[in-house]
């Protein structure tokens, strides 16, 4: 029974992925006027225009183009960059490690900040500790990444001279982008941790444990934490996908050579197949993270399995 629910959920991700690919395909057709004009300029030679038209399959009917696009995706051919004529997938895979490095370090920072904050806020709800923790969370949610980044550079790199302004390579390079991206993630996660911990501590099961004389420490950390962990872990898995989207801005601020910066470079150079590839990869990651979040919460929470079946 449980296995069939899992299989169903995995199968549900397939049409979503197909929908994402469809939307990404039609993105190219949003380019106003003739994409070839947009790419080459109106003064280009007729032979060049025809060659590009052929390369992008723009002469075929649109449904054939769509079918062709899906078929190529399936075969792992994500098209060719218009600028340096290398396969899109190859360019993306080159940049992926940098983004994953940044994503993992930001998520780690977010967890390390959010769990203690959420715990303190839930335990001392309504008191100064709670208000301070939630004020931090509010700041984190409200501060735009593309402003926090430059402000950190100004303070730590320019005024104090402790950390490099941009680039990738050493541990020092990683610090500022990680703080920039981790703060917002920690803000969301700590709110979540506070809410679910408080809710968990209000359940009948905790009240029963308390009546049986289980110590407060055990109530919070053993029984409460187990209940509270489910939504927090689900949220964390969702953020795993969302950081790739957020990386576009942070990577631009710090000149971090990852997937996000590649996307922006592709946009600036009007390298449309590369834009399509980047967007498709980031969105697919996000769909996958959603799937993992759902499966995890099903695995952790027996109530959901019964609820779904």
């Amino acid at each position: 029974m449980f296995l069939s629910i899992i299989a169903m959920r995995i199968l549900q991700a397939v049409p979503t992925l197909l929908g994402v690919a469809t939307l990404v395909f039609f993105l190219l057709h949003l380019v106003p006027g003739d994409p070839v004009d947009a790419l080459l300029g109106e003064t280009a030679m007729a032979t060049d225009r025809e060659a590009l038209r052929e390369a992008l399959h723009l002469n075929d009917p649109i449904l054939m183009q769509y079918g062709h696009f899906l078929q190529q995706l399936w075969q792992g051919d994500w098209g060719t960059s218009l600028i340096n004529h290398r396969p899109v997938l190859e360019l993306i895979l080159e940049r992926l490690p940098a983004t994953i490095e940044l994503a993992l370090s930001s998520l780690t920072l977010a967890l390390v900040l959010a769990l203690p904050l959420g715990y303190v806020a839930a335990k001392y709800a309504g008191k100064t500790a709670d208000i301070s923790a939630m004020s931090f969370s509010l700041l984190g949610v409200s501060i735009p990444n593309f402003w926090l980044g430059p402000m950190l550079i100004l303070f730590f790199s320019v005024t104090l001279g402790w950390l490099p302004v941009s680039g990738r390579g050493s541990f020092e390079n990683l610090v500022l982008p990680t703080i920039t991206m981790g703060t917002a993630l920690a803000a969301v996660l700590s709110r979540m941790a506070r809410a679910s911990w408080m809710e968990a501590m209000n359940t009948d099961s905790i009240r029963t444990f308390r009546a049986f004389g289980v110590s407060e420490h055990q109530l919070w950390w053993k029984h409460g934490a187990r209940l509270a962990a489910i939504p927090v872990i689900t949220m964390f898995a969702l953020q795993l996908g969302a950081v790739l989207g957020g990386a576009v801005i942070t990577e631009t601020v710090f000149d971090w050579p990852g997937l996000g910066l590649l996307t922006i470079e592709a946009i600036q150079r009007r390298d449309y197949p590369l834009v399509q590839g980047c967007v498709l990869l980031i969105a697919s990651f996000y769909v996958l993270a959603n799937l993992i979040a759902d499966l995890l919460s099903m695995a952790l929470d027996p109530r959901q399995r019964h609820h779904n079946s």
Partner: peptide
């Protein structure tokens, strides 16, 4: 609702970035 799901399958402002970039 499928359309809504697909739009929500793009994290954060990525879809808006892509749309704005393509539309000009």
């Amino acid at each position: 609702m499928r359309l809504a799901d697909i739009i929500l399958s793009f994290p954060g402002i990525l879809l808006a970035i892509a749309l704005a970039a393509m539309l000009g």
